[in-house]
């Protein structure tokens, strides 16, 4: 475990906690894409299949449980909670996320580290995570006044992947034959997708103006 990876995991944790707190306290999911939340729940479900069969460390197990619980809780809030569901921006959250699940599944079948169910599911989850933010970014472009918590959620979600890239660089130079092309390429693609969001987010923060993403 290196500092970059720990910082990355903590930033990822902060992003889901920020979102869960926002939804739980103000009972609103305005500006939040249900599709991105569903994709993330699927990412964790597909990636953490080995949760009970392969013990890495207490930290690893606890974090997996937290990510699984938080992502499914957020989806539950947005679908089932009588107050929160009414604040869901259904008519603007129209990204056809089914169109990205299938290609990621096919890619997982073609490009994986080992052709076993668990490894295919793992690769699928890596590819899916790379594009899971798309519905949320599209929704942000359509949302007029983006509330701070949602913007912070997306920012931390992007920041965690940037930190993971530093983690991979560090591990590449400190651990012999630490090579994970699948994670590396998908992780870089994922980070690039946040590019313009980061640009406008930092600009709005610097000029102290409301975040606006150009459509």
């Amino acid at each position: 475990m290196n500092l970059f990876r720990l910082a990355g995991d903590m930033t990822h944790l902060v992003s889901v906690v920020v979102l869960l707190l926002k939804i739980h306290t103000i009972k609103s999911c305005a500006g939040v894409s249900l599709k991105t939340q569903e994709l993330y729940a699927l990412v964790f479900a597909a990636r953490y299949l080995d949760l009970f069969v392969h013990f890495v460390s207490l930290y690893n197990t606890v974090m997996k449980l937290v990510f699984l619980a938080s992502s499914f809780t957020i989806v539950w809030y947005m679908r089932r909670h009588k107050i929160v569901r009414r604040t869901y921006d259904k008519e603007h959250d129209t990204f056809r996320h089914h169109f990205i699940v299938l290609p990621c599944l096919v890619l997982g079948l073609l490009l994986n580290e080992k052709f076993t169910f668990r490894e295919v599911m793992w690769a699928f989850s890596i590819y899916l995570e790379a594009v899971a933010i798309l519905p949320q970014l599209v929704l942000l472009q359509r949302t007029r006044n983006i509330d701070n918590l949602t913007a912070q959620y997306v920012f931390f979600l992007g920041a965690y992947r940037v930190l993971y890239i530093f983690n991979w660089i560090y591990r590449y130079f400190t651990e012999p034959h630490f090579v994970h092309w699948i994670s590396w390429i998908a992780g870089i693609v994922q980070t690039l997708l946040y590019g313009d969001f980061f640009y406008y987010y930092i600009l709005s923060w610097k000029n102290n103006v409301k975040l606006e993403l150009p459509a």
Binding site: H54, N60, K64, S183
Partner: peptide, 10 residues
């Protein structure tokens, strides 16, 4: 080692 062929990252 076992952890080598498994994914130790989240």
């Amino acid at each position: 080692s076992a952890s080598q062929d498994h994914h130790d990252e989240l």
